[in-house]
Design a protein around this nucleic acid. Structure first.
Lengths: 147, 147
DNA sequence: CTACTTGCAAACGTTTTGCATTTGA
DNA sequence: TCAAATGCAAAACGTTTGCAAGTAG
């Protein structure tokens, strides 16, 4: 999934239109792959290009993109829902390191729990399809500052 | 932490009062250790005993109990914040198995990631203090139904 | 007694919706 | 052409707050 034509086809399949607004929202998210943007942040970034856009459109677009699996909605550490681009070749979710001091979020792309998933399935009969891991602690620079 | 006197002392230390409303909220949560109740659910459960209670009191009590570490506020899979009793001898958080079909949440109390935490610290310099794991999949009974 | 707590209603911030208008295909 | 999409404003949602009245200690 890369160029505009691909997206157009994805939309067409479902009888949807690839409007300028939708393209701009998608672009803003994809250009910032590690920023975990909130709806409000996406809104103001898109507004720079398109001052007329309404926040309702942003929300409607976000839930559309979520349904189309182009964007993932996550809850991390605070009271906001955040959005990140789905990386198409990622089999499982990636995970997040959250610093308790400065709030920085770092992604880790290792698949952490493959063994564990099998283990849980055997013990409980629950078939695990995916996992999400949050690691809380102190990032390198905060550790140095507070030493 | 078990009987009312213990709680009374905990509150007294901070100049707080252990009112009937606070006790009822605490009781409702502690009697349902695996139910991950939302504020609204807690409100209606307490109302059965005390129809006059206001939802503002429930929210104020919940954030008080959270600060006192008697209750933990978590976000699982939907748009609600949920509350569960803190289990006093639990060193790390426990984790959650979430069924994609019926929404059931099961707790698992194993400490899943001790090795991994060390691994991440070595690789990234991020000191991990705690972790939260969500496992998504299909629970036993849904697997049987949809077979 | 009196500081802490409550219930109520109003306010809050984020997200959703209704509707008349515009637009992409 | 016309269903789909937009912008606006109003509503909805869970949560918080101000305030006068009530209450635990």
């Amino acid at each position: 999934m890369k160029n505009i034509e691909d997206y157009k086809n994805e939309f067409k399949k479902k009888g949807l239109k690839l409007t300028g607004q939708r393209l701009k929202v998608l672009k803003v998210i994809q250009e910032r792959p590690r920023e975990h943007l909130s709806a409000e942040e996406i809104y103001s970034l898109v507004k720079e290009d398109d001052p007329g856009i309404g926040i309702a459109t942003v929300y409607r677009t976000l839930s559309l993109l979520e349904n189309m699996q182009l964007v993932k909605k996550i809850h991390l550490y605070d009271d906001y829902m955040r959005y990140e681009a789905v990386e198409p070749d990622e089999e499982h979710e990636h995970h997040h390191l959250i610093c308790n001091y400065c709030g920085t979020i770092k992604d880790i792309h290792e698949d952490l729990l493959e063994d564990l998933e099998k283990n849980v399935e055997q013990k409980t009969g629950f078939q695990v399809h995916n996992h999400r891991v949050l690691l809380f602690g102190t990032c390198k620079s905060c550790a140095l500052e507070n030493k």
